[in-house]
Design a protein around this nucleic acid. Structure first.
Length: 772
RNA sequence: GGGCUCAUGGUCCAGAUCGGUUAUGACGUCGCCCUUACACGGCGAAAAUCCAGGGUUCAAAUCCCUGUGGGCCCA
């Protein structure tokens, strides 16, 4: 019989045709029922080109979750969104058009951002579709759409009315390059080299001096106190004395405090507002009055006197010169200092007191902890990341940002009495550009208002994704059926931001947890285990890789190389070599395509053995799929298909399947078993490599999509794993023997078949052309 | 300073819950082979003192302790 499959290898070009079919047949459509399986898909952020190859792997695996759930009989709702708010696109736009945000008209700047986002978004969607992501692209959402921003604002208005939002003047992490306050969660630490300056401070009314080392000499003007460790005997005699600050001549006290480290610098520390978080803590603890030395423009304020107007770095250089000429400089050391920098703009942050809006979170921590306990984490160990973060929360969440491309904070202030007015929820408001919806101030009856110009932290938007996709506030019936949603898949690095903020916000707004499961994936690193970044030049563009090898190869690589939850390395050569397995699968199917699909046959010992091993495979895959750990089925399927089924079983039954020297009954047993095994492999593999399995399934087994099939369940056959070992050992022995005798594989040979393999004798004899 | 996590041939990865012959498989390398599914293949070979030290045990990659080194997080 002619094989139905003629080509010798899987051609990734076929994927395009299959995508079209899926699209036309709408096989992933969702209509809500009583029981739904909803995926809170991470809306990716289009921050620049290329998109991260780790993200492509990530979304491939999220799709495997969807397909696994569908094949388990669940009614899967798989929304797709794009996160479009925030700083990165502003920086990208500034760079692309060589403009500055604050020097550009706001409306015009927003339009340019939107264009940039549209381009980047189109590429991401193209990649996601090419990867075979079975999400709802037709209804994809954007976090900057009117509908989404309406929800963000409505939830803010709700929390405002519940008294969860307040305004406070506090030292804040300030990124002066971006011109905005940032949350602790957006700070990363980088080791930067800097100068540690040893300065001479005179002790008042004596001719003695002490040495103080600091990396921030430009903050001398903001120095309020000197501290030393209480156990540091070098300074015992000076405790309580007045110290004269060089350059400014201000007098400050020398006190003891346990946070001063004897080993660092000279052991004496100058406390300024604000050099670092420790300064903030000390000012709070000792109730010192702060001196604002750095302004919102990132420059020294007038308290810096002759250094006013300079950037801190310039002021530092100048003050070091002055310290030297005036004889206050002891020495300078070059050190590497762990510096807090803004995750997005990569500039060292300054700590500046500013008035910002805060959302209460401290008091919610115990509640969030217990919600966290109700959620099943895959893998379980990553729950710890959330718990550690909850332990360390000590201030409320600053939610206002001095940026343009974000959801506007919906507040108008009375021009006369400054009373803030928050509008009614349910509409999208742009206070910087719109008239206040009320005509008279409720406090002073004035008719003039000024709109708030700030926007929200982007996590205010993305943290309500489960509410948006379940149509909270928009469709109560839908919401009831869908919320809480089923699973939140996301990367490890944003547990303390996206995952945490979602828990917080959804709890505040609904009193319920947002999902019952969280699925956490590791980081994609480069081939040497380093974090990929454009600046390091080690980023891999996923698009050419996928175009070259095809989505299924990429997906199978992702499943077989990434143990769930662990960080993983991306290596193009490794991705490419994965396609060999698809080729193997293809050729197994090609061979089987010469035989008719039959319903039954008389099974021999060989057939029963492989079906038992197949059943073991089904069990193993079930285990992996239940944990959404695709590494387990991918490895098991490859091992079985290649090293057991193809290498031994197919070789053993080849002659029987052709009917050479075997009865029709025996032949049918082989053909039946071959097809049963292959069709099972295809179903088991369908969530991981949806294209090739669909193609082979339709050619061999059905007009209907494999993705409409239910997953195979184990039959619990008797285990025959020990036979596998004996068979492969015997086969190796024969092959080696022929080799050592310089025989071709088809030549005959005389070899004793072990007693334990007596039942397989006939198949083994025909396989190796054994003589009696 | 604290927490999480990892460490197995040149590279990646399994084995650890439950200690037990020769440590799994893949990539790569080398040699032989076109045997009617597949040279994107087959067979075979070389290649690992299982990070180090100590302990428990008849027996440790696996259990315990102490270190070292990487990654991430927090202070």
């Amino acid at each position: 019989m002619e094989p139905k499959i003629l080509e010798k290898a899987w051609n990734p070009e076929l994927e395009k045709e299959i995508l079209k079919q899926w699209d036309e047949e709408k096989i992933y459509d969702f209509t809500p029922q009583e029981d739904n399986y909803t995926i809170d898909t991470p809306p990716p952020y289009p921050s620049g080109r290329p998109w991260h190859i780790g993200a492509a792997a990530h979304y491939s695996q999220i799709d495997m979750i969807a397909r696994t759930a569908r094949m388990a009989g669940k009614n899967v709702y798989f929304p797709i969104g794009i996160d479009r708010n925030g700083l990165p696109v502003e920086l990208y736009t500034e760079k692309k058009y060589k403009i500055r945000m604050r020097e550009t008209e706001r409306g015009e700047f927003l339009n340019l951002c939107r264009e940039a986002l549209d381009d980047l978004e189109a590429e991401m969607i193209f990649i996601m579709k090419s990867l075979g992501i079975s999400g709802d692209f037709a209804n994809y959402y954007r976090t900057d759409s009117e509908e989404y921003r309406t929800l963000t604002q409505s939830t803010f208005i709700d929390l405002w009315k519940k008294g969860q939002v307040y305004l406070a003047n506090r030292p804040n992490n300030y990124d002066w390059v971006s011109g905005t306050t940032i949350a602790d969660a957006e700070i990363i630490y980088e080791d930067l080299s800097t100068k540690l300056v040893y300065m001479k401070f005179k002790i008042k009314d004596t001719d003695k001096e002490i040495i103080i080392a600091s990396t921030r000499p430009e903050l001398l003007c903001a120095c309020r106190i000197i501290i030393v460790n209480p156990e540091d005997e070098r300074y015992t005699q000076y405790i309580g004395k007045k110290i004269i600050v060089p350059i400014t001549n201000a007098e400050v006290e020398l006190r003891t405090h346990h946070s001063a480290q004897q080993e660092f610098g000279s052991g004496a520390v100058m406390v300024c507002s604000y050099g670092d978080q420790n300064d903030v803590a000390l000012f709070r603890e000792l109730e010192l009055e702060e001196i604002v030395a750095i302004g919102l423009d990132g420059r020294m304020t007038k308290v810096a006197d002759e250094y006013a107007g300079l950037k801190p770095k310039q002021a530092r250089t100048k003050i070091i010169e002055d310290l030297e000429t005036k004889g206050f400089l002891e020495k300078i050391e070059n050190i590497v200092h762990r510096t807090p920098v803004s995750e997005r703009s990569k500039t060292p942050i300054e700590i500046i007191p500013m008035e910002e809006y805060y959302l209460k979170q401290k008091e919610a921590v115990p509640k969030i902890k217990s919600l966290g306990q109700e959620i099943t984490f895959h893998p379980a160990m990553h729950k710890q990341i959330l718990m550690n973060w909850l332990e360390s929360i000590n201030i409320d969440w600053p939610i206002s940002r001095r940026r343009y491309y974000g959801t506007e904070i919906p507040i108008w202030y009375c021009k006369k009495c400054s009373e803030p007015h928050v509008p009614e929820p349910g509409k999208y408001y742009r206070p910087w550009n719109e008239k206040c919806p009320i005509s008279n101030c409720t406090k002073c009856d004035s008719t003039e208002f000024v709109g708030e110009e700030r926007t929200f932290d982007t996590w205010m938007d993305s943290s309500i994704s489960p509410l948006f996709i379940s149509k909270f506030n928009r469709d109560d019936e839908f919401f009831k059926k869908v919320y809480p949603v089923s699973i939140r898949p996301q990367a490890k690095d944003i547990v303390r931001t996206w995952l945490y903020y979602t828990l917080l916000r959804c709890e505040q707004l609904t009193g319920k947890k947002p999902w019952s499961e969280a699925w956490i994936m590791g980081y994609g690193l480069d081939e040497n285990g380093m974090k990929m970044s454009k600046s390091k030049g080690n980023a891999i563009d996923p698009l050419p890789v996928i175009e070259k090898v095809g989505a299924d190869t990429f997906r199978f690589w992702s499943a077989s190389e990434i143990n769930h939850g662990q960080d993983f390395r991306c290596n193009e050569q490794k991705i490419e070599s994965t396609k060999k397995f698809l080729s193997k699968l293809w050729n197994v199917a090609r061979f089987l395509s010469s035989f008719p699909v039959i319903e039954s046959g008389k099974l021999t010992a060989t057939d029963e053995w492989i079906l038992s091993e197949l059943d073991n495979l089904v069990k193993e895959c079930k285990k992996g799929y239940e944990e959404y750990n695709f590494f387990i089925p991918a490895i098991a399927i490859r091992e079985f298909t290649w090293n057991v089924f193809a290498a031994h079983y197919i070789e053993m039954v080849k002659a029987r399947a052709y009917g050479i020297d075997f009865s029709d009954e025996e032949r049918d047993g082989a053909i039946f078993t071959l097809h049963k095994t292959l069709s099972t492999i295809l179903k088991l593999l369908a969530p991981i490599t949806p294209f090739i399995t669909e193609y082979l399934w339709k050619i061999l087994y059905s007009k209907n999509s494999i993705h409409k099939e239910k997953q195979i369940i184990p039959e619990n056959l008797e285990d025959q794993n020990n036979i596998t070992k004996e068979i492969s050992e015997f086969n190796s022995k024969v092959w080696n023997e022929k080799k050592s005798q310089n025989l071709s594989l088809k030549d005959s040979i005389k070899l004793e078949i072990p007693e334990s393999l007596e039942a397989f004798k006939k198949d083994l004899k025909s396989m190796h052309n054994l003589l009696d």
